[in-house]
Computed example of a mutant assay.
Amino acid sequence: MPPSLKFIAIASLCAFLGACTLVKFPGVHRIEVQQGNIITQEMIDQLKPGMTRRQVQFVLGTPLLEDTYNPNRWDYVNRIRDKKGDISQERFSVYFDEDSLVSTSGDLQPADWP
């Protein structure tokens, strides 16, 4: 077999195998993938103005992102890819003044926030 024909055969096989990931085979089990922090409305409702960083971390857990340029902001992100491949994302941020919680922002908000 000539070397050029071998090269074409190998390249075709690689292209075919690469294209197999684009095809969704029926009956293949897909799982739900969750990344980030799980934050519920009940957890957020426990936040009160003036809480310390340790108290907030106890309620919400360790933040996914701590902004290097703004150490007074913690970001919590929850991203879920369901079995169909659809992606949903929720964001929640808390803001501190020194060591005291002063405000929040994001997709969920505390119920009794002043």
Results as ranks from 00 to 15, higher is better:
48 K>N: 13
58 F>D: 15
35 Q>T: 11
22 L>I: 02
86 D>P: 00
28 V>R: 06
97 D>A: 14
89 Q>D: 04
68 T>G: 03
35 Q>W: 01
31 I>N: 09
34 Q>S: 11
46 Q>V: 04
45 D>A: 09
108 L>Y: 08
7 F>Y: 10
100 S>K: 15
18 G>L: 10
101 L>K: 10
69 Y>R: 09
89 Q>N: 11
44 I>Q: 06
17 L>N: 05
75 D>Q: 09
6 K>A: 12
104 T>R: 05
43 M>H: 09
3 P>T: 07
24 K>V: 07
114 P>A: 01
51 M>G: 06
101 L>T: 09
5 L>Q: 13
10 I>G: 01
68 T>P: 00
83 K>P: 00
37 N>W: 04
28 V>W: 02
37 N>E: 03
27 G>H: 02
114 P>C: 00
111 A>K: 14
4 S>V: 12
69 Y>D: 11
84 K>I: 01
43 M>K: 15
69 Y>E: 10
15 A>T: 11
32 E>C: 03
66 E>S: 11
71 P>F: 01
99 D>A: 10
109 Q>G: 02
70 N>Y: 08
93 S>D: 07
11 A>T: 12
36 G>I: 03
41 Q>D: 06
15 A>Q: 02
104 T>S: 09
29 H>K: 12
16 F>I: 12
78 N>F: 11
1 M>V: 13
42 E>K: 13
63 P>R: 05
60 L>H: 07
89 Q>R: 15
88 S>V: 12
1 M>Q: 08
45 D>R: 05
3 P>Y: 10
19 A>I: 02
93 S>I: 04
15 A>H: 01
44 I>E: 05
50 G>F: 07
54 R>W: 07
58 F>E: 15
23 V>A: 06
102 V>F: 06
105 S>H: 09
56 V>N: 06
22 L>V: 01
7 F>C: 09
109 Q>N: 08
30 R>F: 09
83 K>E: 14
89 Q>W: 02
8 I>P: 00
50 G>C: 07
32 E>H: 01
37 N>K: 03
64 L>W: 08
28 V>A: 04
73 R>I: 11
4 S>C: 04
55 Q>G: 04
59 V>Q: 05
35 Q>M: 08
18 G>D: 03
41 Q>L: 12
75 D>Y: 01
22 L>G: 12
88 S>K: 12
24 K>F: 03
100 S>M: 12
103 S>Y: 10
60 L>F: 07
83 K>G: 00
62 T>Q: 14
109 Q>I: 06
71 P>H: 02
62 T>E: 14
81 R>G: 00
66 E>L: 05
78 N>P: 00
53 R>Y: 05
97 D>R: 14
77 V>K: 04
39 I>V: 15
